[in-house]
Amino acid sequence: MEKDHKPSSTEKPVLQKVAKLFLYTFLIVIAVVQVLPLVWLFLFSLKNNQEVFNLPPLALPQDPQWGNYARVWTEGNIGQYFFNSVYITASAVILTVIFASFVTFAITRMKWKLSSLVLGMFMVGLMIPVHSTLIPLFNFFLNVNLMDHPLAIILTYTAFNMPITIMILLGFYYTLPRDIEEAAIMDGCSVHRLFFQITLPMTAPVVATTAIINMIYNWNEYVFVNTFISSDKFKTLTVGIQNFIGQYQTDWGAIGATLMISILPILIAFFILSNRIVEGITAGSIKG
Protein backbone atom coordinates (compact mmCIF):
# COMPACT_ATOMS: atom_id res chain seq x y z
CA MET A 1 0.00 0.00 0.00
CA GLU A 2 1.34 3.41 -0.93
CA LYS A 3 1.30 6.07 1.77
CA ASP A 4 0.44 9.33 0.07
CA HIS A 5 0.95 12.38 2.22
CA LYS A 6 -0.34 14.82 -0.33
CA PRO A 7 -3.79 13.52 -1.14
CA SER A 8 -4.48 16.67 -3.18
CA SER A 9 -2.16 15.57 -5.97
CA THR A 10 -3.88 13.03 -8.18
CA GLU A 11 -0.96 12.62 -10.58
CA LYS A 12 1.37 11.01 -8.12
CA PRO A 13 -0.04 7.47 -8.08
CA VAL A 14 0.00 7.37 -11.90
CA LEU A 15 3.53 8.65 -11.98
CA GLN A 16 4.54 6.13 -9.39
CA LYS A 17 3.03 3.33 -11.43
CA VAL A 18 4.93 4.44 -14.52
CA ALA A 19 8.13 4.62 -12.49
CA LYS A 20 7.54 1.14 -11.07
CA LEU A 21 6.88 -0.22 -14.55
CA PHE A 22 10.08 1.36 -15.76
CA LEU A 23 12.07 -0.13 -12.87
CA TYR A 24 10.67 -3.62 -13.41
CA THR A 25 11.44 -3.41 -17.13
CA PHE A 26 14.99 -2.40 -16.27
CA LEU A 27 15.41 -5.35 -13.88
CA ILE A 28 13.88 -7.81 -16.31
CA VAL A 29 16.10 -6.66 -19.19
CA ILE A 30 19.17 -7.34 -17.03
CA ALA A 31 17.83 -10.77 -16.11
CA VAL A 32 17.32 -11.57 -19.81
CA VAL A 33 20.87 -10.42 -20.65
CA GLN A 34 22.25 -12.65 -17.89
CA VAL A 35 20.36 -15.74 -19.04
CA LEU A 36 20.05 -15.39 -22.81
CA PRO A 37 23.62 -16.45 -23.71
CA LEU A 38 23.01 -19.67 -21.78
CA VAL A 39 19.71 -20.29 -23.54
CA TRP A 40 21.48 -19.78 -26.85
CA LEU A 41 24.19 -22.22 -25.75
CA PHE A 42 21.59 -24.85 -24.86
CA LEU A 43 19.86 -24.39 -28.22
CA PHE A 44 23.00 -24.72 -30.32
CA SER A 45 24.11 -27.76 -28.33
CA LEU A 46 21.09 -29.50 -29.88
CA LYS A 47 21.65 -28.37 -33.45
CA ASN A 48 23.83 -29.50 -36.32
CA ASN A 49 26.10 -26.98 -38.04
CA GLN A 50 23.66 -26.34 -40.84
CA GLU A 51 20.98 -25.30 -38.36
CA VAL A 52 23.43 -23.24 -36.29
CA PHE A 53 24.52 -21.25 -39.34
CA ASN A 54 21.22 -20.91 -41.18
CA LEU A 55 18.45 -20.67 -38.57
CA PRO A 56 17.99 -17.53 -36.45
CA PRO A 57 20.10 -17.84 -33.26
CA LEU A 58 17.17 -18.45 -30.94
CA ALA A 59 15.19 -20.74 -33.25
CA LEU A 60 14.38 -24.15 -31.80
CA PRO A 61 16.28 -27.04 -33.37
CA GLN A 62 14.08 -28.85 -35.92
CA ASP A 63 15.30 -32.25 -34.85
CA PRO A 64 17.09 -31.98 -31.46
CA GLN A 65 20.49 -33.64 -31.77
CA TRP A 66 20.71 -35.29 -28.35
CA GLY A 67 23.32 -37.46 -30.02
CA ASN A 68 25.76 -34.54 -29.68
CA TYR A 69 25.86 -35.22 -25.95
CA ALA A 70 26.36 -38.97 -26.27
CA ARG A 71 29.03 -38.46 -28.91
CA VAL A 72 31.22 -36.04 -26.92
CA TRP A 73 30.76 -38.07 -23.73
CA THR A 74 32.41 -41.15 -25.21
CA GLU A 75 34.40 -40.04 -28.28
CA GLY A 76 35.57 -36.73 -26.83
CA ASN A 77 36.74 -38.29 -23.57
CA ILE A 78 34.39 -35.91 -21.72
CA GLY A 79 33.19 -38.78 -19.52
CA GLN A 80 36.73 -39.27 -18.22
CA TYR A 81 37.24 -35.55 -17.56
CA PHE A 82 33.86 -35.39 -15.82
CA PHE A 83 34.77 -38.27 -13.52
CA ASN A 84 38.13 -36.61 -12.70
CA SER A 85 36.40 -33.34 -11.89
CA VAL A 86 33.99 -35.15 -9.58
CA TYR A 87 36.54 -36.99 -7.48
CA ILE A 88 39.12 -34.19 -7.35
CA THR A 89 36.43 -31.66 -6.40
CA ALA A 90 34.90 -33.99 -3.79
CA SER A 91 38.22 -34.93 -2.16
CA ALA A 92 39.34 -31.32 -1.87
CA VAL A 93 35.96 -30.19 -0.52
CA ILE A 94 36.01 -32.85 2.22
CA LEU A 95 39.61 -32.08 3.23
CA THR A 96 39.06 -28.33 3.22
CA VAL A 97 35.85 -28.39 5.23
CA ILE A 98 37.23 -30.76 7.89
CA PHE A 99 40.58 -28.96 8.28
CA ALA A 100 38.90 -25.56 8.30
CA SER A 101 36.39 -26.72 10.95
CA PHE A 102 39.28 -27.93 13.13
CA VAL A 103 41.03 -24.57 12.82
CA THR A 104 37.89 -22.51 13.41
CA PHE A 105 37.03 -24.60 16.46
CA ALA A 106 40.53 -24.15 17.89
CA ILE A 107 40.47 -20.41 17.22
CA THR A 108 37.00 -19.65 18.57
CA ARG A 109 36.71 -22.21 21.38
CA MET A 110 40.18 -22.94 22.70
CA LYS A 111 42.57 -20.65 24.53
CA TRP A 112 46.09 -20.19 23.17
CA LYS A 113 48.41 -17.26 22.72
CA LEU A 114 49.07 -17.43 18.99
CA SER A 115 45.46 -17.82 17.93
CA SER A 116 44.97 -14.29 16.58
CA LEU A 117 48.29 -14.41 14.74
CA VAL A 118 47.40 -17.72 13.11
CA LEU A 119 43.95 -16.43 12.18
CA GLY A 120 45.57 -13.34 10.67
CA MET A 121 47.84 -15.51 8.53
CA PHE A 122 44.90 -17.46 7.20
CA MET A 123 43.06 -14.22 6.38
CA VAL A 124 46.02 -12.64 4.58
CA GLY A 125 46.02 -15.78 2.44
CA LEU A 126 42.84 -14.40 0.83
CA MET A 127 44.84 -11.69 -0.90
CA ILE A 128 47.65 -13.77 -2.40
CA PRO A 129 47.46 -13.90 -6.21
CA VAL A 130 47.68 -17.48 -7.47
CA HIS A 131 50.16 -16.51 -10.18
CA SER A 132 52.72 -15.43 -7.58
CA THR A 133 52.89 -19.01 -6.32
CA LEU A 134 52.81 -20.95 -9.60
CA ILE A 135 56.52 -21.28 -10.38
CA PRO A 136 57.59 -22.38 -6.86
CA LEU A 137 54.65 -24.80 -6.69
CA PHE A 138 55.56 -26.19 -10.10
CA ASN A 139 59.12 -26.74 -8.91
CA PHE A 140 57.97 -28.22 -5.60
CA PHE A 141 55.61 -30.76 -7.16
CA LEU A 142 58.33 -31.69 -9.66
CA ASN A 143 60.76 -32.37 -6.80
CA VAL A 144 58.37 -34.45 -4.70
CA ASN A 145 57.16 -36.44 -7.71
CA LEU A 146 53.64 -35.10 -7.58
CA MET A 147 53.80 -33.43 -10.97
CA ASP A 148 50.97 -34.74 -13.15
CA HIS A 149 49.36 -36.35 -10.12
CA PRO A 150 45.81 -35.58 -8.88
CA LEU A 151 47.10 -35.25 -5.29
CA ALA A 152 48.97 -32.06 -6.28
CA ILE A 153 45.68 -30.54 -7.38
CA ILE A 154 43.70 -31.75 -4.36
CA LEU A 155 46.26 -30.38 -1.88
CA THR A 156 46.56 -27.06 -3.72
CA TYR A 157 42.79 -26.59 -3.76
CA THR A 158 42.65 -27.42 -0.06
CA ALA A 159 45.34 -24.88 0.84
CA PHE A 160 44.00 -22.07 -1.34
CA ASN A 161 40.37 -22.48 -0.28
CA MET A 162 41.19 -22.72 3.42
CA PRO A 163 41.13 -18.94 4.11
CA ILE A 164 37.70 -18.29 2.61
CA THR A 165 36.26 -21.43 4.22
CA ILE A 166 37.53 -20.41 7.65
CA MET A 167 36.16 -16.93 7.11
CA ILE A 168 32.65 -18.21 6.39
CA LEU A 169 32.80 -20.68 9.31
CA LEU A 170 34.03 -18.00 11.75
CA GLY A 171 30.91 -15.87 11.44
CA PHE A 172 28.75 -18.86 12.38
CA TYR A 173 31.00 -20.12 15.18
CA TYR A 174 31.01 -16.68 16.83
CA THR A 175 27.22 -16.51 16.95
CA LEU A 176 26.72 -20.10 18.12
CA PRO A 177 25.63 -20.23 21.81
CA ARG A 178 28.25 -21.92 23.94
CA ASP A 179 26.26 -23.20 26.91
CA ILE A 180 25.82 -26.71 25.49
CA GLU A 181 29.56 -26.98 24.87
CA GLU A 182 30.37 -25.60 28.33
CA ALA A 183 27.99 -28.03 29.98
CA ALA A 184 29.55 -30.93 28.07
CA ILE A 185 33.03 -29.97 29.28
CA MET A 186 31.72 -29.71 32.87
CA ASP A 187 30.42 -33.23 32.49
CA GLY A 188 33.92 -34.38 31.63
CA CYS A 189 33.49 -34.66 27.87
CA SER A 190 36.81 -34.77 25.96
CA VAL A 191 37.64 -32.08 23.41
CA HIS A 192 37.48 -34.58 20.55
CA ARG A 193 34.05 -35.81 21.55
CA LEU A 194 32.91 -32.24 22.01
CA PHE A 195 34.08 -31.33 18.53
CA PHE A 196 32.82 -34.37 16.65
CA GLN A 197 29.59 -35.08 18.52
CA ILE A 198 28.41 -31.62 19.55
CA THR A 199 30.05 -28.71 17.71
CA LEU A 200 30.39 -30.23 14.25
CA PRO A 201 26.74 -31.37 14.09
CA MET A 202 25.59 -27.96 15.35
CA THR A 203 27.50 -26.24 12.55
CA ALA A 204 26.03 -28.50 9.86
CA PRO A 205 24.21 -25.64 8.05
CA VAL A 206 27.33 -23.52 7.61
CA VAL A 207 29.41 -26.60 6.76
CA ALA A 208 26.94 -27.24 3.94
CA THR A 209 27.31 -23.65 2.79
CA THR A 210 31.11 -23.81 2.70
CA ALA A 211 30.98 -27.20 0.98
CA ILE A 212 28.87 -25.90 -1.88
CA ILE A 213 31.02 -22.77 -2.29
CA ASN A 214 34.16 -24.94 -2.33
CA MET A 215 32.55 -27.28 -4.82
CA ILE A 216 31.88 -24.41 -7.22
CA TYR A 217 35.43 -23.03 -6.90
CA ASN A 218 37.07 -26.42 -7.41
CA TRP A 219 34.83 -27.47 -10.25
CA ASN A 220 35.66 -24.27 -12.15
CA GLU A 221 39.38 -24.06 -11.35
CA TYR A 222 41.64 -23.85 -14.38
CA VAL A 223 45.20 -22.53 -13.82
CA PHE A 224 46.43 -25.21 -11.42
CA VAL A 225 45.16 -28.13 -13.51
CA ASN A 226 46.46 -26.53 -16.68
CA THR A 227 49.91 -26.10 -15.11
CA PHE A 228 50.37 -29.25 -13.01
CA ILE A 229 48.50 -31.88 -15.01
CA SER A 230 49.57 -33.06 -18.43
CA SER A 231 48.05 -36.55 -18.83
CA ASP A 232 44.59 -36.83 -20.28
CA LYS A 233 43.68 -39.42 -17.67
CA PHE A 234 43.96 -36.84 -14.85
CA LYS A 235 42.63 -33.70 -16.54
CA THR A 236 39.46 -32.11 -15.20
CA LEU A 237 36.64 -30.71 -17.31
CA THR A 238 37.86 -27.09 -17.47
CA VAL A 239 41.14 -28.13 -19.07
CA GLY A 240 39.65 -31.14 -20.87
CA ILE A 241 37.07 -29.10 -22.75
CA GLN A 242 39.85 -26.77 -23.87
CA ASN A 243 41.65 -29.70 -25.55
CA PHE A 244 38.47 -31.09 -26.95
CA ILE A 245 37.29 -27.82 -28.44
CA GLY A 246 40.72 -27.36 -29.99
CA GLN A 247 40.13 -30.55 -31.96
CA TYR A 248 36.47 -30.03 -32.85
CA GLN A 249 36.67 -26.34 -33.61
CA THR A 250 34.15 -26.40 -36.40
CA ASP A 251 31.51 -28.66 -34.85
CA TRP A 252 29.29 -26.20 -32.96
CA GLY A 253 26.85 -28.82 -31.73
CA ALA A 254 29.63 -30.85 -30.13
CA ILE A 255 31.16 -27.76 -28.53
CA GLY A 256 27.78 -26.69 -27.19
CA ALA A 257 27.10 -30.13 -25.74
CA THR A 258 30.53 -30.18 -24.08
CA LEU A 259 30.02 -26.77 -22.49
CA MET A 260 26.54 -27.77 -21.33
CA ILE A 261 27.90 -30.92 -19.68
CA SER A 262 30.57 -28.87 -17.92
CA ILE A 263 28.15 -26.30 -16.48
CA LEU A 264 25.19 -28.60 -15.78
CA PRO A 265 26.31 -29.81 -12.31
CA ILE A 266 26.70 -26.19 -11.20
CA LEU A 267 23.32 -25.21 -12.62
CA ILE A 268 21.65 -28.16 -10.88
CA ALA A 269 23.37 -27.30 -7.59
CA PHE A 270 22.20 -23.73 -8.06
CA PHE A 271 18.56 -24.69 -8.58
CA ILE A 272 18.54 -26.87 -5.47
CA LEU A 273 20.77 -24.83 -3.16
CA SER A 274 20.55 -21.23 -4.36
CA ASN A 275 19.92 -19.88 -0.84
CA ARG A 276 23.05 -21.51 0.53
CA ILE A 277 25.12 -20.30 -2.40
CA VAL A 278 23.89 -16.74 -1.96
CA GLU A 279 24.58 -16.93 1.76
CA GLY A 280 28.08 -18.35 1.27
CA ILE A 281 29.11 -15.81 -1.36
CA THR A 282 27.84 -12.95 0.81
CA ALA A 283 29.57 -14.22 3.94
CA GLY A 284 32.77 -14.96 2.04
CA SER A 285 33.16 -11.51 0.53
CA ILE A 286 31.97 -8.76 2.81
CA LYS A 287 34.36 -8.95 5.70
CA GLY A 288 37.38 -9.34 3.35
Binding site: I128, P136, F140, T156
Partner: peptide, 21 residues
Protein backbone atom coordinates in the same frame (compact mmCIF):
# COMPACT_ATOMS: atom_id res chain seq x y z
CA UNK B 1 44.87 -30.86 20.99
CA UNK B 2 45.35 -27.34 19.64
CA UNK B 3 48.39 -28.45 17.64
CA UNK B 4 46.48 -31.45 16.31
CA UNK B 5 43.59 -29.25 15.14
CA UNK B 6 45.53 -26.34 13.72
CA UNK B 7 48.69 -27.83 12.27
CA UNK B 8 47.36 -29.81 9.29
CA UNK B 9 45.73 -26.74 7.74
CA UNK B 10 48.48 -24.40 8.86
CA UNK B 11 51.28 -26.52 7.42
CA UNK B 12 49.43 -26.81 4.11
CA UNK B 13 49.01 -23.03 4.03
CA UNK B 14 52.71 -22.54 4.78
CA UNK B 15 53.89 -25.15 2.31
CA UNK B 16 51.66 -24.23 -0.63
CA UNK B 17 50.99 -20.51 -0.17
CA UNK B 18 53.47 -18.68 2.05
CA UNK B 19 56.73 -20.47 1.23
CA UNK B 20 55.99 -20.19 -2.52
CA UNK B 21 55.47 -16.42 -2.40
Amino acid sequence: VIALYVLPAFLLLMLLVYIPI
